[in-house]
Design a protein around this nucleic acid. Structure first.
Length: 274
DNA sequence: AACGCGCCCTGTCCGC
DNA sequence: TGCGGACAGGGCGCGT
């Protein structure tokens, strides 16, 4: 997915549309997106008749807190969408996996072509435990240059791979990892523990800048991502490096190159990124 | 224990 | 027009 900015956009949209609403019915069309220990009946029993009290984001997850305690955590995988049924674009959904009927007559739809997404149900205690496994939120005050330097110093992984591990920094995916490394002028294959203090500081700032800018324009749509109204995000034209193999580097004009790290593409300028 | 890899699944695009 | 292969915002479980 949907990385941090896209999940954040959806959370903000859903807060307006479905907070304080009660789930009056629930239909699971594709049960394979449910966690292995979770049946459609379990989900319905836990949530039907309950009011959504709060919607939040943690890493790339969308967290629904229901009255009385149950917490539904939705990870959108690569192609998951959460769209309100009254949006004009809702009729374009072709792969609805779960439908939440809401008081008032409309519904919240979960659509997912590839079905890599996942629904998990937790008690507050269980979620507290699970949540602790995620790393620092990059937009929080806790994410300082010193913290990043300290974290990177303990790994020899290529920095692009390192950034994708949700247990270290939460919410970074392949697009924003590549964009931030370009802005920080750090080569994606650099072992994490070789970053200098200055490079770590630049990377910290670059991550925060790119995530904030992407949230500002409601995320990046390459193919599948949509907000809660079914609309595309606006950051794709603002990508400087991701998906731009062969195009001139926007800084120096050198053709952008692609390499594969850990089975995923990394894009970089061979001249700007050391 | 940390890291890399293959896999889950469907759709699209590109070259032949 | 059809077909095979590569590739896609993620994350888990496995083996080393």
């Amino acid at each position: 997915m949907p990385e941090l900015p896209e999940a954040e956009t959806i959370v903000r949209d859903l807060r307006r549309h479905v907070t304080e609403r009660t789930v009056t019915g629930l239909r699971v069309i594709h049960a394979d997106i449910l966690a292995p220990n979770l049946s459609p009946d379990d989900l319905a029993h836990a949530l039907v008749g309950r009011r959504i009290e709060e919607i939040a984001r943690r890493a790339k997850n969308i967290v629904f807190r229901f009255e009385g305690g149950p917490i539904l955590v939705v990870n959108l995988g690569m192609t998951g969408r959460l769209v309100v049924s009254t949006a004009p674009r809702a009729s374009e959904l072709r792969h609805v996996a779960v439908r939440f009927d809401l008081d008032g007559g409309d519904a919240l739809l979960y659509d997912d072509v590839r079905r890599f997404g996942r629904f998990d149900l937790y008690s507050p205690e269980q979620w507290k435990e699970r949540e602790a496994e995620f790393g620092v939120e990059p937009l929080s005050d806790a994410f300082t240059a010193e913290r990043l330097q300290e974290l990177t110093s303990r790994s020899r992984s290529p920095i692009r791979n390192w950034l994708l591990d949700q247990r270290r920094i939460a919410g970074i995916g392949n697009i924003y990892a590549n964009e931030a490394l370009f802005r920080a002028r750090v080569h994606p294959a650099r072992p994490a523990n070789t970053l200098t203090k200055q490079e770590a500081a630049r990377l910290r700032d670059a991550l925060r800048d790119v995530l904030r800018e992407a949230i500002e324009v409601r995320g990046t749509t390459l193919r599948d991502y949509r907000d809660a109204s079914g609309e595309a995000g606006g950051f794709e034209p603002l990508l400087k490096i991701y998906g731009r193999e062969g195009e001139p580097c926007p800084v120096c004009g050198t053709p952008i190159e692609r390499l594969v790290l850990g089975n995923r593409s990394a894009f970089f300028c061979p001249r700007c990124q050391k």
